[in-house]
Write a protein that binds this DNA or RNA. Sequence first.
RNA 1: GGAGGGAUUCCCGAGCUGGCCAAAGGGGGCAGACUGUAAAUCUGCUGGCGAUGCCUUCGGAGGUUCGAAUCCUCCUCCCUCCA
Length: 412
Amino acid sequence: MLTQVLSLEEELALITRGTEEIFPEEELVEKLKKARRNKKPLKVKLGVDPTGADLHLGHLIPVLKLKQLQDLGHEAILIIGDYTAMVGDPTGRNKTRPQLTHEQVMENCRTYQEQVFRILDPKKTRVVYNGDWFGKMSFQDVIKLMSQMTLARMLEREDFASRFQNQLPISLHEMIYPLMQGYDSVAIEADIELGGIDQKFNILVGRELQRTMGLEPQVGVCNPILIGLDGKEKMSKSLGNYIGINEPPYEMYGKTMSIPDELMMMYFELITDIPMAELQAMEQKIQNGELHPMEAKRMLAREIVTRFHSAEAALDAEAEFNRVFKENQIPDDIPEVTLTQEDLEDGKIWLARLLVKAGLVKSNGEGRRLIQQGGVRINGEVIDDVDFDWPAESGAVIQIGKRRFARVRMQE
RNA sequence: GGAGGGAUUCCCGAGCUGGCCAAAGGGGGCAGACUGUAAAUCUGCUGGCGAUGCCUUCGGAGGUUCGAAUCCUCCUCCCUCCA
């Protein structure tokens, strides 16, 4: 059912929020009008390939958009790409993706859905597997599908072109990926396809396939690529610049606080529901010095934790963050090292070794270097003597930098 | 099938007329200073060993040599060109 509390303009403004490009926008307006006229929701497609187990905020951006459209009364269709995942999307890749077996893919599916449904309403979401149609295709069908694409068009793409130029391999099966994704749109007769702007090519292929099959072409609604914690590269697991959906509140909060200031507004726009007018006002205040950027970032961090955990968790995480970084106190919950008599010599232990024992560093050498640099404290006191033998004391807290802690326990 | 090019420390990438190479430079990471936060900026560190030395590392296995990332042989993988 379609809720029509909003005007067309308001609805359009909501959909447009946090998008980089909508193509073509006029068609979106037409579709929205038609949906209102016929009281028939639009079919909104989001395809996900369960190629890994853990999701991060970057993956969630189109999911949040899907949720928004779902809340507007449109039909959310989540396509689990069990077949496309076996191919692997070459988009933006400088390497062929490893091919997954169907079992691995199905394995990932479970955790994927669990995470995605923390955002989407499961009762209102249609979940389909693209194996449902690809599994039934004959080789003839595949040949026919492949005839829709030319090599020249594929090589126009930045990713393939650069691989080609840099003498990196391009496997043939990668070429079929956009066609598969496009065919998904045919199969479900999508009105809108969501995705990052990097999906533009694939989404356009969907439009073309729909047109050749006599269907009304879908509209692409693309969000910008979320920049990761480093403020430079796109958020990705392999770069380690991500905030994972499954991370504990304190981690999420802290990681959010670590994003460069310039990224804040992007995060606000893409991840929170705070109205654009308020965001603009906030930006204004930061600019003229009325609002401290750090305060704004705190708010962002609270919003994010609230979204994936709860409001209470957000407050706890904030309190913890204050304790550690503002007051230089130790966190609530820190790991413990247990020392036995064997670790001690005359009741003492070499500090570098203790750090290794506590799992705070990987080697004596690393511990040594940190001690030399004044990065190591015991009970808050800096120890910079490399050869320091510490008279072990139960309950003492050893600390490296601002965020690595361990509490010492003595075993009798 | 034929001819060439390549594989280096977490990553990219020098070195490859044999010793001065635990191996330049950059990235990333970590620490310090400063601060407004795990922002920004600047500085330092970044194979292991209780360590002015020793040990393991430059795709794999052998060999030459007092000495090999560097030279030779074979093998594995990758790329390019021709067909």
